[in-house]
Computed example of a mutant assay.
Amino acid sequence: MNQSLLPVSSFRAAVGVQKPYDLVEAAGTLVAVSRRGAGTPVLCLHATAHGGRDFENLAEVLVPQGFEVVCVDWPGHGASPTDASREPASAKRYAVVLLALLPLLFGKAKPIIIGNSIGGAAALIAGHDQPEAMSALVLCNPGGLAPLDPVAARVIKLLVAFFNAGARGASWFPKAFELYYRLVLSGPAAHAQRARIVAAGPEMAPVLAQAWHSFGQVDADLAERAQALNLPVLFAWAKSDQIVAWSRSKRAAEKVPHARVEFFRGNHAAFLEDPQAFQSAFLRFVRNLHLQ
């Protein structure tokens, strides 16, 4: 494809997949993809302003146990260039990228998809639209399940304004973003990746503003799609999340057929914040799928 590959900053690159990785063309853009191991395929999808490196410790555990762990940096994240299609960040856009990637990465194989936040929302959309392309979903504090009520509208408006200020280069934004990320990731196991995300925060502010704007749109409500899922689903919920709260997502999540819910320590990403408990829960879930 004809896409100018602008240099990726060291801060952004540190958050994403690490070498070796490939740049794969999908849905009119390029995404960085790393693959480790062989066996049951697991595709890992990160939150906005995060990257595939979120899952490196999970890969260390899963690869020796017969899994192939595949991690993707969303467009404009990590090692991936800015989206050549100029589509703004949204779960809907990322679901299109995901569905284009699946046959390229796996052929007819059906991966288990782990999706966090916007990655979970994208996986949910893809699982609804093409359930035959995957074997199961592990949704970690996914967006799209809480009602788009006045409370949500106020929070979204505030966060869009916050990230737009960062995109304009507000002098106070880096420190404020660091404080904000104490609400997003907690616990010693997440500290290293949180520091990388914070360092890249000013650069990622425009993408965060786009994503949060998208969360306020009518098509961001995924409750009906979730209730129509025809796949095994594990909700792995970091129970202290102040933004994607279980209390606001519970009503939709509990109506998802073939789903189970487990709770973990942490604020937004159980696999980062409570890794051992998440790893155990994931392996139990896979054993019940009879894939290994």
Score class of each variant (00 low, 15 high):
residue 125 I to L: 15
residue 229 L to E: 07
residue 43 L to W: 03
residue 102 L to E: 03
residue 136 A to G: 06
residue 47 A to F: 08
residue 172 W to A: 12
residue 82 T to G: 11
residue 228 A to P: 06
residue 60 E to K: 11
residue 244 V to H: 09
residue 139 L to E: 05
residue 51 G to V: 07
residue 36 R to G: 11
residue 186 S to M: 04
residue 278 F to P: 01
residue 70 V to K: 01
residue 56 E to Q: 15
residue 137 L to K: 00
residue 149 D to Q: 00
residue 86 R to H: 14
residue 258 H to T: 04
residue 73 D to A: 03
residue 221 D to F: 10
residue 74 W to I: 06
residue 221 D to S: 12
residue 250 K to H: 12
residue 188 P to S: 12
residue 50 H to Q: 13
residue 280 S to T: 10
residue 125 I to R: 15
residue 198 V to K: 02
residue 284 R to W: 02
residue 152 A to D: 11
residue 286 V to G: 06
residue 136 A to C: 05
residue 249 S to A: 13
residue 70 V to S: 03
residue 178 E to N: 07
residue 8 V to H: 06
residue 83 D to T: 00
residue 166 G to T: 04
residue 172 W to M: 01
residue 79 A to E: 14
residue 221 D to A: 14
residue 231 L to Y: 07
residue 21 Y to D: 04
residue 80 S to C: 05
residue 217 Q to E: 15
residue 68 E to L: 08
residue 251 R to Q: 10
residue 149 D to W: 01
residue 24 V to S: 06
residue 204 M to D: 13
residue 84 A to R: 08
residue 87 E to D: 10
residue 268 H to P: 09
residue 51 G to R: 06
residue 210 Q to L: 07
residue 10 S to R: 13
residue 124 L to R: 00
residue 178 E to T: 06
residue 69 V to K: 00
residue 245 A to T: 12
residue 273 E to I: 00
residue 246 W to D: 11
residue 159 L to V: 06
residue 105 L to C: 02
residue 82 T to A: 13
residue 195 A to P: 02
residue 14 A to D: 11
residue 258 H to K: 11
residue 23 L to G: 11
residue 37 G to D: 08
residue 269 A to W: 09
residue 240 S to Y: 09
residue 125 I to G: 09
residue 288 N to Y: 10
residue 226 A to Q: 04
residue 198 V to W: 01
residue 86 R to V: 05
residue 111 P to T: 04
residue 169 G to I: 08
residue 186 S to W: 00
residue 262 E to R: 14
residue 154 R to K: 14
residue 216 G to I: 04
residue 209 A to Y: 03
residue 103 P to A: 08
residue 243 I to K: 06
residue 27 A to S: 14
residue 134 M to D: 07
residue 78 G to D: 08
residue 92 K to P: 05
residue 85 S to G: 08
residue 7 P to L: 04
residue 268 H to G: 13
residue 183 L to E: 13
residue 70 V to P: 01
residue 199 A to C: 09
residue 280 S to Q: 13
residue 64 P to H: 03
residue 278 F to K: 02
residue 292 Q to T: 13
residue 51 G to Y: 02
residue 185 L to G: 00
residue 105 L to I: 05
residue 149 D to A: 06
residue 187 G to C: 05
residue 70 V to G: 02
residue 94 Y to Q: 11
residue 175 K to R: 10
residue 35 R to E: 12
residue 240 S to F: 10
residue 1 M to A: 14
residue 226 A to E: 01
residue 74 W to C: 04
residue 222 L to H: 03
residue 85 S to E: 07
residue 8 V to W: 07
residue 261 V to E: 02
residue 189 A to G: 01
residue 292 Q to L: 15
residue 205 A to S: 11
residue 34 S to H: 09
residue 72 V to H: 09
residue 137 L to W: 00
residue 10 S to C: 10
